[in-house]
Nucleic acid binder design. Structure first.
Length: 920
DNA sequence: AGCCAACTGTTTTTT
DNA sequence: ACAGTTGGCT
């Protein structure tokens, strides 16, 4: 590959600290990958001395893939590369907290955004929510201000905050929230980083471990780092000694979420011995687009100096870049769809000298400031012409008929009413089930209604597990004998069944989120709480997502926000709806965090409110997504007061020479056969996912593509507790500590945690406690003679297969036998009813992954049953491993083609309620 | 130019 | 829920 002088300098500067300013389309990922390969190659360092942070998990996968590719080609091997850390800061911090020498956080669970808000609301007083005073007067209110409070608790930890300026009531509330998290053993995304920073600063063992291991720190998207993350980076740098940050101050788009562009602007003043390289040649877009983008972004004051040029990899003809006005959104949408039709199939070269191909629907993107508010007319226009599209970010899961029916089901069961809503009758529920067009017969619906009426009677008095929300959901779907194939029968559109199942699966996820927090409520209270959640809050928490599921790349027009589009590119980009108050955004009004804390308590607080400059950077990101065709447009919405005027950005770009404000007369466009752009898509899988595929491919689909979940059980956490205790035993043994039966009580205190057990169920709790101590003691007695032969605990492996499949997993234990055979060990508590054959496949994958990581082959695999003691042992052979690899490859092919068939044996399957056929 | 009632409502990643 | 924008009216 040929590099420009600047790119080459960026790649080869490894002994000094480095700041790379990478403009849009400048080949940033390639340069970072090449630089990392260069470090490995020329410095001869161990891959595990490299830590690279990316902004998203998706970016991490892409970067890793690129590094592996280069190393394989250059060094002829990818051995050991799994030891490198390439991933998000969050992921790295979580690893720090859950790997030796820290054991405390093993039992902690990461709280998702939705669950965090549920927790805050459920414990509205203990979380500090309703005790948080406003600056004027009054307090934050339950349900209404919880998302504000969520923002507040993160800002307090993530921003540079002057606590002296924050009202003491607010400080006390945030402290209450943090102790609530600890009490329930939760980590939210902010706390992960906060605690990791504390550990990095004060845990000497951890500091030594990192100091020994890490040499090179690389931070991508450095402009979107928040102050807390910067503190983590600085602390790591002090231990590692070398840092390279990559970013572009012009593309800072997450400042409203706390990222601070000052980090990149002042980087060279804050770190020693820094070289700066600006890579500014744009290989993506035509000269006209790059010129326009440059003119547009140069109006921002205080930018880092940089040159921006186009390599002219796309030619420009007048008319390729337009800024148009229309009379109404409908007219605007119709024009867009017309343009898509006229360019569909147009001959296109992805790069100079590349083979020509015809443009496909997936080569068109519609980028919006607000999908929720502006996507509708465009979707309607695409629907009218039967053009496939994918929208991301639309609300409306709860507007779909099938989810609406399920919401009525729970509303009916709960009998929930308040000033605004009264519960539906069974006939309304029946009607909603009919309207959902799920292919149900009269008899099936009758059976379902009878089931509901019967269960409803039990709710006020019973606390049976049968009545927990998820159990009842699956039982109800089983009673009406729902099956995916049945749905097509009533509908002509073939996709209807997948969409309905996807939405119903999402509803199962909604229940899981809710029960995660509310599981211990009595059934009597659970239902009304859930009903009010479904009525008031859930609709805003969950986006409609059908369409983006699956592992394939559908040939469809993409409709998304500019934020989502960051890092992507298309031959053709539409940026419509450029109205005043929309783009640049008029901003949000109403109560915000600065009604709770004063502005001057947070340094650089402006950024959190959103400024014109931020909007300008966002628009710059939008236009630089286009390769050749860029169509900006606007139209007034007559009936909306604030939507009648043109965006100042549209006016601005209309002045530029290359931009044409009226469409030139149509020319004939040469069309050839369409072909989707080739992209190597890696397919990341974890072993726990793959396990379900091995059991039944359709079950995999139900769980991971649709989102169906199993009911929560009170004993959940038992196997995990044992597992965590074993991890500590082994890790401490490797350190030379002698572990004996006398440690069991301490291990019990540190690791035994059952998040869902009801306090009333003392019998179960006692039994599990005893089982925990007994199993652990038995294991120590039977195995402590081998504790001096351990090699690794909880070894992370990443298995890369030739066709882009990457399997992630963790090996419980690796040790030697008396005769020095290398053994891969896995522990099963009796509660985990995993089939032995499946476990063997798991260990074969681990054996292969271990070989890829270390070059060493395992001789044996060993499966321990902790309840009964003893272990099964088997010799590892190439034939066994090859047949497992074969199976994974088949799985990959099936996943990519969405060909996930039902298996024969449903007897043990917990998903059979939503699988079995009508006639069985 | 200044006043005021009517109107209106963003973006989302992180295990 | 609330506060900034808009546009009609003085």
């Amino acid at each position: 590959m040929n590099y420009t002088d600047d790119q080459r300098k960026a790649i080869e500067t490894v002994d000094k600290n480095l700041q790379i300013i990478a403009c849009a389309g400048s080949g940033k990922t390639q340069v970072i990958s090449e630089r990392i390969a260069h470090i490995l190659d020329s410095q001869g360092v161990d891959p595990s001395s490299i830590v690279a942070f990316t902004f998203t998990e998706k970016a991490a996968i892409e970067l890793k893939d690129r590094i592996y590719g280069i190393c394989q080609k250059r060094l002829g091997t990818d051995q050991g590369l799994g030891g490198m850390y390439v991933g998000t800061i969050h992921g790295y911090c979580l690893n720090l907290l859950q790997e030796p020498p820290i054991y405390k956080y093993l039992k902690y669970k990461v709280l998702s955004d939705v669950c965090q808000r549920l927790l805050i609301d459920r414990y509205s007083k203990q979380s500090g929510l309703t005790e948080t005073p406003l600056l004027k007067d009054g307090y934050l209110r339950r349900w209404i201000d919880s998302s504000l409070y969520q923002g507040l608790v993160s800002i307090c930890a993530e921003a540079d905050v002057d606590y002296d300026k924050i009202p003491s009531g607010v400080v006390a509330s945030v402290e209450k929230y943090r102790s609530l998290l600890h009490q329930h053993k939760y980590l939210d995304f902010t706390t992960i980083q906060m605690e990791a920073l504390n550990a990095l600063k004060s845990h000497e063992e951890l500091r030594n471990k990192i100091k020994e291991q890490v040499r090179y720190l690389i931070v991508d998207e450095y402009q979107d780092i928040n102050p807390l993350q910067e503190r983590i980076i600085k602390t790591l740098f002090d231990l590692a000694g070398n840092i390279c940050v990559v970013g572009d101050d012009d593309q800072t788009i997450y400042q409203w979420r706390g990222s601070d562009v000052q980090n990149i602007i002042t980087f060279k003043d804050r770190y020693p011995n820094v070289d700066t390289v600006s890579i500014g040649l744009n290989f993506r877009s035509s000269g006209a687009i790059v010129d326009s983008a440059r003119q547009f972004v140069e109006k921002i004051p205080n930018r880092l100096p940089k040159k921006m040029d186009s390599s002219n990899s796309q030619s420009f003809e007048r008319g390729d870049v337009l800024a148009l006005s229309f009379k109404s959104p409908v007219e605007e949408a119709d024009w867009i769809v017309g343009k898509i039709e006229s360019l569909h199939g147009a001959a296109y070269q992805d790069k100079p000298h590349a083979e020509e191909r015809g443009l496909c629907y997936s080569d068109f993107a519609v980028l919006l400031r607000s999908v929720k508010n502006d996507a509708r007319p465009i979707m309607d226009a695409l629907d009218a012409k039967d053009i496939p599209y994918i929208v991301s970010g639309m609300d409306g899961l709860f507007d779909t008929p099938e989810v609406n029916a399920m919401r009525l089901v729970y509303w009916f069961l709960s009998d929930y009413s308040d000033g605004k809503y009264t519960p539906p009758s069974i006939s309304q529920v029946r009607k909603s089930l009919v309207d959902a067009r799920l292919g149900l017969s009269q008899e099936q619906i009758d059976a379902g209604c009878a089931f509901l009426e019967e269960k409803k009677k039990l709710i006020p008095t019973s606390n049976s597990a049968e009545l927990h929300l998820q159990r009842l959901y699956l039982d109800f779907l089983g009673t009406i004998q729902l099956c995916e194939e049945g749905i097509d029968a009533v509908s002509k559109s073939t996709k209807r069944s997948e969409i309905a199942y996807y939405n119903l699966g999402k509803f199962s996820t909604v229940i899981s989120d809710f029960e995660n927090i509310y599981f211990k409520s009595s059934v009597r209270n659970l239902y009304p709480e859930f009903a009010s959640f479904l009525l008031y809050r859930a609709p805003q928490y969950y986006p409609e997502g059908a369409g983006e599921n699956g592992y394939g790349r559908p040939d469809a027009v993409q409709i998304m926000t500019v934020h989502k589009a960051k890092g992507m590119q298309w031959p053709t980009v539409f940026i419509p709806c450029l109205r005043k108050n929309r783009f640049p955004s008029g901003g949000s009004r109403g109560r915000g965090i600065f009604h709770v804390i004063p502005c001057d308590a947070v340094s650089n607080a402006e950024r959190l409110k959103g400024t014109q400059e931020d909007e300008r950077r966002l628009f710059y990101v939008a236009i630089t997504r286009a390769e050749k065709y860029l169509f900006c447009s606007w139209s007034p919405i007559e009936e909306k007061r604030n939507s009648k005027k043109i965006s100042e950005f549209q006016t601005d770009i209309s002045r530029y020479d290359n931009i044409t404000t009226a469409e030139p007369p149509a020319k004939s466009i040469r069309k050839i056969e369409g072909k989707q752009r080739h992209v190597d898509l890696t397919l990341p899988l974890t072993f726990s996912e793959l396990k379900y595929y091995f059991e039944c491919p359709y079950q995999f689909k139900l769980r991971f593509l649709y989102g169906f979940n199993e009911p929560i059980q009170q004993a959940m956490g038992f196997g995990k507790s044992l597992h965590d205790a074993l991890a500590e035993i082994h890790a401490e043994s490797i350190q030379g500590t002698t572990i004996t039966v006398s440690d069991v009580d301490r291990l019990y205190e540190d690791h035994f945690f059952l998040p869902f057990i009801s306090p009333a169920n003392t019998q179960l709790k006692e039994n599990l406690e005893k089982a925990f101590k007994r199993d652990l003691a038995k294991y120590i007695v039977e195995n402590s003679n081998k504790f001096d032969k351990l090699e690794h605990v909880e070894k992370v492996i990443e298995l890369n297969l030739a066709n882009g499949i990457v399997v992630n997993g963790r090996i419980d234990l690796i040790r030697h036998t008396e005769t020095n055979e290398l053994t891969i060990v896995d522990f099963k508590s009796d509660a985990e009813a995993q089939d032995v054959e499946t476990t063997k496949k798991q260990l074969h994958i681990y054996a292969l992954g271990y070989k890829q990581l270390t070059g060493k082959s395992a001789d044996l695999i060993e499966i321990h049953n902790l309840k009964h003691g003893g272990a099964d042992r088997e010799v590892v052979t190439d034939a066994m491993i090859n047949s497992t690899v074969q199976l994974i490859n088949e799985a990959g092919a099936d996943l990519r083609s969405n060909h996930l068939e039902k298996c024969e044996d449903c007897s043990k399957c917990s998903m059979k309620c939503v699988c079995k056929h009508k006639d069985k």
